[in-house]
Design a protein around this nucleic acid. Structure first.
Length: 765
DNA sequence: CAGTGAGCGAGCTTCCGCTTGACTT
């Protein structure tokens, strides 16, 4: 028998708290929610005022049994789930499952994990707040209704196994909308003029000032004319302005900002960031990693201050408390910070060290003084043109938090250079070294990365810290979007240079549209999105979540009955579902591209049973149309007649090599070569199946054959030891087997291999 | 691994948010 049992959500938290509470307390965890709507069917009795049917999910049965046992053995039970809507619901479900009396069940919340804070929480128990619980039930049921009523419409009207939801469908919409913006974007170019000036007539002993013309020139003629003017101009300093300014550190990390920075600075995917953070949390190195709060505990503030003063001195310290601004924040946790700010580094693997370092720097910087900067602008005028040149320079007078950390941005290196400027005086004459006019194209809005999508979702108040990573994985898993690199295309740009009185023009090339780890919508994503926007505009409206959140808040305050809210929502919603089922045809995103230039047959593209397909001719009158799959980066929406016709030129023969023919085609896994009944993939971004030569094909074949030889560590005939993604493994008759830990690969004999395989076979039986 | 694209019908798919492991051919 234990005097007191405390139930929290996370096992790592349980461990920490138990240390503070002494032996009269046992702390166990619920591992999150322990009950949910029934998995099968809707799990909601709509006729009976949306009565939810709750059940304990398979993977929670064990936890629940342990909780029951622990509860039986305890005199007093304290439920200390998180202080938010979900936490309150967890408390209520725990009470329900354990058969506790709601009137007497002690609900407590910990605001900080310190002895005092925990003691004061225990002294001030309250009852479970049913209004808050009901707002959670409304949230849960609304999400189930939306997801489980719209998804089946998609199965009937678009394709099986698709899904729609309050969060995921908006995420897809953002990506589709952005892609369309990019598709319709028409780049325009203008000429940007920059100049290097010197302060003396002679190049020797001159200081150099880099400046940009205040105006861009619409075309090459104007740009060239301006350079001619520059050649004849007398330049002089027209004015100098010095503006003092300050820069402030970014607030401590929340889940969303951690995901963004880990992507920008470390190149981590959103899921990777969470996995590494989880490790750090479980090891007690950082505070909880799923949070929307920028709040730091008093303890953390004091500790950070100590660290800063001892490392950098008193004047670098500035204790700050940040206000969480994000929509719908529930602030049940602290910001993500080092558990012990005095540890500037930790033991662990490379990724853990890197992420910890980032968290430490961000937290420490957030408690440091502003940086003091001085921004100087020199304007330079010309005696023969109204155009001025401006040079800007920034000098850091006091580095403050910049000593430790600066936040990155999503915009890739803007070529704005901030040089140190030499001392100049008004009216001082200047002389050009070189003036150049470069053609600059306007850019469309960038495609989303996982991290920038999370940022956008958070701004819209859609999704929660615990769901950002899973949502991104869902929309990729459904095939709505694909995370991809694109090589980009070459584009020619013109460059005019004025030097020593002579203007020369050159043509340079730049790469445009190069993408790395960006989210691209797929045809099925666009078709589903258009279908939802047309038929369920309210649900995929960017403000839908914000609007229902307002009502959930009212329910939490006791001003609105949760069943009333659901009735109001469900009535019109369900009618829309039924109407859509009744009147809409199957959606294939089909387009007619034109007619075949020789046969005159219609050429169409649409979503087929196995993906996007191009078709020549119609199936009527017993005619047999020809089909060809679209390639990975072609979209039904943008493919042209020529591109579609080209698809039909594969597979084709490249010719003979020794005794066999080499065929090039494009299959399920992209373009490939077939030679002697073996398949060889073409290199993505390098080889093109339409233009690849016999010579290049032979090179690819040779390369792969050689690599395969390297893959074989040992060859015992029917058994082989191969080198794979997860290290060495055994293979026999197309089945693979793992090696036991600590196997000495060098000395491995065939007999040992057989033994390993036999043993593994037995296990699986 | 590397094709496929008719139509029918049975039986399946699906949401969001709270937590961790178990698992990699």
């Amino acid at each position: 028998m234990v005097e007191n049992l405390v139930i929290v959500e996370s096992p790592a938290k349980a461990k920490t708290i138990e240390k503070f509470l002494g032996k009269d307390f046992r702390v166990v965890s619920s591992f999150g929610h322990i009950r949910d709507l029934a998995k099968k069917n809707l799990g909601i009795d709509i006729e009976k005022d949306f009565r939810p049917e709750y059940e304990i999910p398979q993977d929670k049965v064990k936890v629940v049994n342990e909780l029951r046992k622990a509860a039986k053995d305890a005199k007093n039970i304290w439920i200390a789930s998180d202080e938010d809507r979900e936490g309150e619901a967890i408390a209520w479900h725990v009470a329900g499952v354990l058969g506790l009396d709601l009137e007497t069940t002690r609900r407590i919340v910990f605001h900080e994990i310190t002895k005092d804070a925990i003691a004061s929480a225990v002294e001030n128990p309250r009852k479970i707040d049913m209004n808050l619980v009901n707002s959670q039930q409304a949230r849960r049921i609304l999400d189930r209704l939306v997801g489980f009523e719209i998804s089946p419409v998609l199965w009937k009207k678009v394709q099986p196994s698709l899904s729609a939801g309050r969060v995921q469908s908006v995420a897809v919409r953002l990506i589709v909308d952005r892609e369309r913006e990019i598709i319709s974007f028409k780049p325009e170019s203008s000429y940007r003029v920059t100049s290097l000036f010197r302060t003396r007539d002679t190049i020797k002993e001159s200081a150099v000032i880099r400046a940009e013309a205040s105006k861009r020139f619409p075309d090459e003629k104007e740009a060239e004319k301006f350079l001619q003017q520059c050649n004849l101009a007398q330049f002089a300093v027209a004015g100098i302005t010095v503006k003092p300014g300050t820069r402030s550190p970014a607030p401590p990390f929340t889940t969303s900002t951690l995901q963004q920075e880990a992507y920008r600075k470390l190149g981590f995917s959103v899921a990777q960031t969470m996995t590494v953070a989880q490790k750090l949390y479980e090891a007690g190195k950082i505070t909880y990693m799923r949070t929307d709060s920028t709040n730091l505990s008093k303890l953390a503030l004091a500790k950070s201050r100590e660290v800063i003063v001892s490392l950098f001195g008193e004047k670098y310290s500035k204790t700050r408390q940040y206000v969480t601004r994000s929509k719908g924040a529930q602030e049940a946790h602290e910001a993500i910070r080092p558990a012990y700010p005095d540890n500037s580094e930790i033991q662990g693997n490379q990724n853990e060290k890197k992420l910890y370092d980032l968290i430490w720097k961000r937290t420490i910087a957030s408690q440091m003084a502003d940086a003091i900067v001085e921004k100087t602008t020199i304007s330079i005028n010309m005696n023969n043109s109204p155009v001025t040149f401006n040079a800007t320079g920034e000098v850091v007078k006091f580095d403050g938090f910049l000593k430790v950390y600066t936040e990155s941005t999503d915009t890739e290196n803007t070529d704005e250079e901030k040089d140190l400027l030499p001392p100049v005086e008004k009216d001082m004459p200047l002389y050009y070294n070189v003036v150049s006019a470069v053609q600059k194209y306007t850019q469309p809005s960038p495609r989303y990365t996982e991290a920038s999508l999370v940022k956008k979702l958070e701004e819209l108040g859609i999704g929660r810290p615990s769901t950002y990573a899973p949502t991104i994985s869902t929309i990729q898993h459904r095939g709505y979007v694909l995370k991809e690199d694109r090589p980009g295309e070459k584009r020619q740009i013109k460059l005019y240079t004025l030097e020593k009185g002579k203007i020369t023009s050159t043509i340079k090339s730049e790469i445009t549209g190069k993408e790395k780890s960006k989210l691209f919508p797929q045809d099925i994503g666009m078709i589903v999105n258009d279908f939802l926007v047309e038929n369920f505009p309210e649900i995929v409206d960017f403000n839908f979540t914000a609007e229902v959140e307002e009502q959930f808040d009212e329910i939490a305050l006791g001003k609105l009955k949760w069943t009333v809210m659901l009735h109001k929502f469900y009535g019109p919603f369900h009618k829309t579902v039924e109407n859509t089922l009744e009147k809409k045809n199957r959606q294939t995103g089909g387009r007619v591209l034109g007619n075949h230039p020789e046969t005159g047959e219609p050429v169409t593209v649409r979503m087929g049973r196995f993906g996007p397909v191009a078709q020549i001719g119609n199936a009527d009158n017993g005619a047999k149309p020809r089909y060809a799959s679209l390639t990975r980066n072609q979209l039904i929406e943008t493919i042209t007649l020529e591109e579609a016709l080209r698809l039909f030129s594969l597979p084709r023969s490249l010719g003979q090599a020794e005794d066999s023919e080499i065929i090039v085609g494009t299959g399920k896994f992209g373009p490939y070569l077939r030679y002697r009944n073996k398949f060889y993939s073409l290199k993505k971004g390098v080889d093109d199946p339409y233009t690849v030569t016999l010579e290049r094909a032979l090179e690819i074949i040779r390369e792969k054959d050689e690599n395969e030889k390297k893959k074989v560590l040992k060859d015992f005939g029917d058994i082989m030891l191969l080198n794979g993604r997860y290290g060495p493994y055994l293979t026999r008759e197309k089945k693979n087997y793992r090696l036991p830990k600590g196997t000495d690969i060098e000395k491995l004999t065939k007999e040992e291999c057989v033994a390993i395989i036999e043993k593994s076979e037995k296990k699986t039986k």
